[in-house]
Design a protein around this nucleic acid. Structure first.
Lengths: 253, 253
DNA sequence: GCTGTTTATCGTCAGGCAGACGACTATGAT
DNA sequence: ATCATAGTCGTCTGCCTGACGATAAACAGC
């Protein structure tokens, strides 16, 4: 068998779709764009686009991320955060019927970003917005009448759910939660990230003990801030550690 | 912009490649096939093939797995093991230069299988064999002169390394290690799986306490065996639990 | 200035779990 | 019978977590 006989394989279109997550006003939100054309015209979808002919998958994802948000993706091996987002491959979706018109395989990527001012419209002027993931995933069940009542286009609800689940589990055993924070942040801000992503309430004292006691997780910058009100809090940057051992435990139920 | 203008996207070939792992004689082994044609003719590679026009990615991976090993993949939602392997998507590799002849995107899958009698040659009579992952990954550094001295074809060394890393981390917090065992197995056999995959030695007493004390991990069948020598050991099947909480801890270093 | 509110931070205590390791059991091999 | 090999049950100690009390340092309003 010649697995590479150029006439022997069916042609596919390959796209990257992005699950871009952030934490806004105590809720986990995802970036959604409104489709301007069929199929699913007028419906919300995840941002994405075709992989170019000379482009790696991660490059295509980084390019789409810049186009949609202006965020530059970190090099995973680069120091801590500059002002970029964490970007990693999530999974690949290739059901033959996922796009009604042609065979499209989508390599979904997950991006975690700090709270951004506002999504900028894509170069093609599609509208874009941040929406709480709960609203994007549980549509139709609440009798809501607004524009978001329709489920996401294609299989994007599944992709989003997988991305959210990845984020939820990954902040347990890695320092990825800091990707949701600005370059300098307080322990309380980091705790609110965990609370928003997991949808739980954490004990501030035990959380503080845990994160400050894990070597390499946080490094104090020396500064303090009162932007959250109350007693001034120390500012930290993300330390070099990427894996938390032992992990942060997610409360049950 | 029309992301689906049929003339606006470059065509890709899409393949699935398989990282099939098993534990044989106390070593973690992977299935490798010898390439019969250029490029990389004569070199070892991971089994794989094209995704068909009407086929889902997971179906293609399951089909390749049957063709290469005769193993039927579990339905992830099916009961415990029948005589199949665990199969899950691993990651997707799409470097523009990963195949010298054309643009190929490969959706790699990870399969975990019990020790099999012997790999059966593919329908196209390629030769296939189990090889310790260390030998497949660390070629050239040991001055070995045998047929395996050449590194794997394409980017398959990277794919294999990623698959091994996935398996190593996933048996920490899931019951996946039982996928390496026959339908009925002893605690000692399961422990040898962990030892082979992690490349460590575990304390038999603490391991026994851990796995028998985790609800839903193992269910006794009532039988015993002495196939490992020594005192007869209880036989178990995999229980319904898929997530281990708290996880099995991998010894450091 | 005083008081109440908010958030941050430090401490204490009990329970659970893991690592280290002793002890005993039940087989087969010599 | 003795030994070697595995399996299984216990004990002890230290670490970590969850629950929660207490103190500190800011701001808002009176």
């Amino acid at each position: 068998m010649s697995p590479y006989d150029p006439s022997a394989f069916p042609p596919f279109a390959v796209t990257v779709d992005l699950v871009v997550l952030t934490v806004r006003s105590h809720a986990l939100c995802a970036l959604a764009v409104r489709r301007g054309e069929p199929p699913f015209q007028g419906r919300w979808a995840l941002p994405g686009g075709f992989v170019r002919d000379d482009e790696d998958l991660s490059s295509a994802a980084a390019r789409e991320l810049v186009e949609e948000t202006g965020l530059r993706a970190h090099d995973p091996d680069a120091p801590a955060q500059a002002n970029g987002a964490h970007l990693e491959q999530l999974a690949t979706y290739g059901d033959p019927k996922r796009d009604p018109r042609m065979r499209v395989v989508s390599v979904a990527h997950l991006a975690l970003a700090p709270d951004l001012p506002a999504p900028r419209a894509g170069g093609d002027a599609r509208s874009a917005r941040w929406a709480p993931v709960e609203a994007l995933l549980h549509q139709g069940g609440y009798g809501r009448e607004d524009e978001q009542a329709a489920p996401l286009a294609f299989d994007h609800a599944q992709i989003l759910a997988d991305g959210v689940e990845r984020a939820r589990s990954k902040i347990e055993y890695s320092s990825l939660a800091t990707a949701f924070c600005p370059p300098e942040f307080t322990v309380g801000e980091l705790r609110r990230v965990y609370e928003a992503v997991w949808g739980v309430v954490l004990d501030p004292r035990n959380f503080h003990r845990k994160v400050t006691g894990t070597p390499g997780f946080l490094v104090p910058t020396g500064g303090t801030t009162t932007r959250q009100g109350g007693r001034p809090a120390q500012l930290f940057r993300a330390g070099g550690a990427t894996l938390l051992n032992p992990p942060m435990l997610r409360p049950e139920v």
